[in-house]
């Protein structure tokens, strides 16, 4: 009988990403309801030292696959190792992050484990011993409760949605030998180009300052960047701004861009087209700054200012400076 809640924790350059603590905390909650243990798997190169840290977030046992082949995430190597570990240990539930890496890994695992998965979930609960996942569909225009019949029951969790809860457990570290079949590794990373901005990435940011066509041009974003720097925020953009070449594709928020869920999303000169709302409507608080009081963004905003953003944003920056 399948038993226990498993997670795959994500690390980059030898440090856990915050989303790993979110899924560990969510796993702990489910395991407590089931009266079960939480196990985590972490893959990397030279990462044994960090593994025990997961105990702080409710993980009983940490399986560490330490191998030079895991230094950077590649689908081939990671899928091979996680598939082996899951088949050997037969967990009832398997949770991953719906991050870029987690999405790639989890969806391929659905294939290798021949099971089902609820992806990009925003809530999880146990009902009759089974996992029920809540997830947005149709760009957040509808929600669905999904039950997974396969084994393990898989879910990927939207970053920034599940709270990080500390509940110290043993965090016992166990070495896992992936016995990698090198001949099956068909992909390799030939180059990594780090973004130069040094800012937090959109899907991980707690605060996002975003600009649309109302920014009038690439120079307009300087005032958003000044505010973002103070708030430790990421800078986003509407598709109109990206298509105009003012901002890179990676900054686009929306249905054909990134789906974000920060604590605070500040939309400046963005009208609030349905495809834009699709990417940011799960933000906890939304602020809209727009000179057109009829702009649809105001219907979604918790706080709105009807005015010229070029007047408001610098004043906001000045006000924030006073309190921080």
């Amino acid at each position: 009988m399948a038993k226990g809640v498993w997670i795959v924790a994500e690390q980059r350059d030898g440090a856990f990403r915050k989303v790993s603590f979110e899924i560990a905390s969510a796993a702990r909650k489910l395991a407590d309801e089931l009266g079960d243990e939480v196990s985590a798997m972490v893959l990397g190169s030279g990462i044994e030292g960090i593994a025990a840290e997961l105990g702080k977030y409710g993980v009983d046992k940490v399986y560490v696959a330490d191998d030079p082949a895991f230094e950077k995430y590649t689908t081939d190597a990671y899928v091979q190792a996680v598939t082996k570990a899951v088949k050997e240990n037969d967990p009832a539930i398997l949770l991953l992050a719906a991050s870029v890496e987690g999405k790639d890994l989890s969806s391929r695992l659905v294939g290798s484990l021949a099971t089902g998965m609820a992806s990009d979930c925003t809530d999880l609960r146990i009902e009759g011993g089974k996992l029920i996942a809540l997830r947005p569909m149709y760009a957040g225009k509808a929600f669905a409760e999904v039950e997974v019949d396969g084994s393990p029951q898989m879910a990927s969790l939207r970053p920034n949605v599940f709270p990080v809860v500390e509940s110290a457990k043993a965090g016992e570290v166990v070495k896992f030998d992936p016995a990698l079949d090198a001949a099956a590794l068909k992909t390799k990373i030939v180059d990594v180009q780090k973004d130069a901005s040094g800012r937090v990435e959109l899907t991980e940011a707690m605060v996002i300052v975003s600009g649309g066509r109302g920014m009038k041009g690439p120079e307009g974003y300087q005032i958003l960047e000044a505010l973002a720097d103070l708030l430790g925020a990421a800078v986003g953009a509407s598709r109109a701004a990206v298509d105009a070449g003012w901002r890179p594709q990676t900054d686009q928020v929306g249905q054909t861009g990134k789906v974000v869920s920060p604590n605070l999303y500040v939309a400046c000169g963005i009208s609030g087209a349905i495809q834009h709302l699709a990417g940011m409507s799960s933000s906890k608080y939304i602020v809209a700054i727009n000179k057109d009081e009829e702009a649809p963004i105001f219907a979604k905003a918790d706080y709105g200012i009807v005015d010229d953003l070029f007047k408001i944003v610098p004043e906001l920056t000045a006000e924030v400076k006073k309190i921080l």
Partner: peptide, 17 residues
Amino acid sequence: KAKIVKMMPPPERAPGK
């Protein structure tokens, strides 16, 4: 292997200020 048991409209957002 994955079944939708129920669909629902998105949660309402409280009216803004």
